[in-house]
């Protein structure tokens, strides 16, 4: 039982990161129908910028804030320079653009920063906390707590604010949203900023545990994408559930079956879910109109 609890803790920690990446996918997808494969790079940027700002002598909280703001700006730039100009291009082209952006950001980071592995100090020390028969790192609580706060804040934003509702309206029907006077371009910009900021925050929170280097983005993007699809693309609740489930599957597989194949099981589960529910766990059913 103790080991199970231990696996659950580590699964939830990793899953929280996946959920945040999946949430980033979801926000951009809702605003623009684009699946942004550069999402993982936002996480990388969040970690890297914080590390380098911190090493340059900026206090950690300020360095983290700087990283989130800068990454959000890069997200906006990505939208303005690469996504908006390609409006209406086929899905494959958009996939290639965002993957190109991901390669570009990686290449730039490698030049601006370096190719080393970096870590950040934990926010509240490294003394493990005992819960039940298992232990959890304080930083894990930061990750899980941070993810929960982001999801709650976002839920409040979407349901309680006019801007949030405008985002939802745009996700639902862009043309109709335009007709009632919503500036859908501004919504897209906002979504990229938000999504990049969330990714960067995930990077800041996770770096003390997972470390960061210029090339961690691809794997994260794939996991986040898979998590978002597992939950049902376009649904924040799906992103949360999909991310956590994926993290748990990986941790349990690594713990009980084989650490080499932990990612394999995750993808097998996703394939199984998609066979049974082609739209993911929480995705909307769509019927073709003729």
């Amino acid at each position: 039982m103790d080991s199970l609890l231990q696996f659950l803790f580590s699964g939830l920690t990793v899953g929280a990161v996946y959920a945040l990446v999946a949430l980033g996918f979801t926000i951009i997808y809702n605003a623009s129908d684009v699946v942004n494969f550069a999402q993982g790079e936002f996480v990388m940027l969040g970690g890297m910028i914080t590390v380098f700002a911190h090493e340059a002598g900026i206090p950690l909280p300020l360095a983290a804030l700087l990283a989130v703001v800068l990454t959000a700006a890069i997200g906006v730039a990505l939208n303005k320079l690469a996504i908006e100009p390609a409006r209406g291009a086929p899905v494959v082209s958009i996939i290639i653009i965002t993957i190109g952006a991901s390669i570009f950001i990686r290449g730039a980071s490698q030049l601006i920063f370096d190719k080393q592995l970096h870590r950040l100090p934990s926010f509240s020390g490294d003394a493990p906390i005992r819960i039940g028969g298992a232990t959890i790192l304080p930083q894990s609580l930061w990750v899980i707590g941070g993810a929960l706060i982001v999801f709650v804040a976002l839920w409040l934003f979407f349901t309680r604010t006019l801007t949030g509702k405008a985002v939802l309206a745009t996700a639902n029907n862009r043309l109709a949203a335009q007709l009632v006077g919503i500036n859908t371009r501004a919504i897209m910009t906002l979504s990229f900023a938000l999504s990049a900021a969330i990714g960067a925050l995930a990077g800041v929170l996770a770096t003390p545990i997972t470390l960061v280097s210029y090339d961690v983005g691809v794997a994260l993007a794939l996991k986040g994408f898979a998590a978002a699809m597992l939950g049902g693309m376009g649904n924040p609740k799906g992103a949360l559930v999909g991310g956590l489930l994926l993290g748990l599957f990986e941790a349990l597989t690594a713990g009980y079956l084989s650490s080499q194949y932990k990612e394999a099981v995750a993808f097998i589960v996703i394939l199984a879910v998609l066979f049974a529910m082609p739209q993911g766990l929480f995705g909307a059913k769509s019927t073709e109109r003729v």
Partner: peptide, 8 residues
């Protein structure tokens, strides 16, 4: 950097 830019 160049590969990414070309793709975009």
């Amino acid at each position: 950097l160049v590969l990414g830019a070309v793709m975009i």
